[in-house]
Design a protein around this nucleic acid. Structure first.
Lengths: 202, 202
DNA sequence: GTCTATAAATCGATAGAC
DNA sequence: GTCTATCGATTTATAGAC
């Protein structure tokens, strides 16, 4: 499964054959089929591991944060950015999800995983509201949807054009959660993916 | 090509064979190959048509809007929502993009299209800033990236779980462009996918 | 549980006649 | 430009021995 992870991340879902996975792991195709129902099952197991990992990270990050709004927000932002930076995972998930559009059972499995993350983020936001009396511009659930969706969307954008800034996430988090004050727009130090550019792309 | 559009939208990229497209259109595979270089070329042509269409819609919507910030923002929001509601297009684009991860040439073609939309949205935002003196929390370029990415991300989320609210987009647009004032979070009429709410969104 | 061998099916792409 | 026929390559999945 470790090998499967690597291979699927590197080659994508469709392009990675079970034979390749098996051989790289030092086994034969038959061995794979005696441990997994098939290709879909294997990928799902791999993805599952990753989803658990993501949730654990988020949980750990938030718990480790000091009991201030800023610290907790920083923890969330860090997780959020790591999620987007996990470009290969994002692409794998998207490819697998779209490749199995005609398999309702698998789509449902994926949906459940997304819901778990969504629920956790929602609860996190609600907690924030209760503890710190934060006033939000959107309901916690909607806000969570937006945050998660923006994560996926940015991961996708960065697949085609890696130059897309990841720092906008922290800005946005600040805007939505705390600093509801306007910021001048012509600030020359606006975010950029590739630091050497001293001219923030048009 | 019209048939190709329908077939690819309905069945997705990989699952739709050229033979199927050809036969549905009343032709044979050979006919397809004498008009397109191959499957990738055909899909790209179909997508291209769609991208042009999207940009035209945006252009037209904005131009038709009255010269007030609200009207122009409404035009943009309408376009934005229609983009997300075009779920099948979103999925097709994602599937094709991830299925051709190992074809740099095609990835580049897709990236160029995304850049066109991104540039147009950026210019739109800059125009807004100049005309109405709007003060933004992010640079126009970053903001455009966020808006477009959020569109893709929501389209993806809705593929797995169609219950995700689309109305958050107008809220968010208002938050980012005009109403930089907090709104109570415990409003019971928070957004919902099913419209029976007679409360005009927050 | 793992292996080898093979089935079974799909599909993109091409060749060549008309 | 379009058609028919076919190649070629890939890959999932299974059968059966060990």
């Amino acid at each position: 499964m470790e090998v499967a992870s690597d291979e699927f991340l590197e080659g994508g879902y469709r392009a990675t054959s079970l034979e390749r996975v098996a051989e790289t792991a030092g086994f034969s195709k038959g061995a794979v089929y005696s441990n997994f129902a098939g290709k879909e099952d294997l990928v799902l197991a791999v993805l599952d591991q990753h989803f658990v990992h993501r949730l654990d990270n988020l949980r750990a990050g938030v718990q480790a944060a000091a009991e201030t709004l800023d610290a907790r927000l920083a923890a969330f932002t860090a997780w959020w950015e790591s999620m987007v930076a996990d470009e290969e995972w994002g692409v794998l998930i998207m490819e697998f999800a779209s490749a199995t559009r005609d398999r309702p059972l698998i789509q449902e499995q994926l949906a459940v995983r997304e819901q778990h993350i969504l629920s956790f983020v929602t609860a996190l936001i609600e907690d924030e509201v209760e503890r710190f009396g934060v006033t939000l511009p959107l309901s916690p659930r909607d806000l969570a949807s937006v945050l998660v969706a923006l994560g996926s969307g940015l991961a996708f954008s960065r697949m085609l054009a890696p130059a897309i800034p990841i720092g906008v996430l922290s800005d946005l988090a600040r805007i939505l959660f705390v600093d509801r004050q306007a910021v001048p727009v012509d600030d020359p130090s606006s975010r950029s993916a590739t630091p050497p550019a001293d001219q923030p792309v048009s």
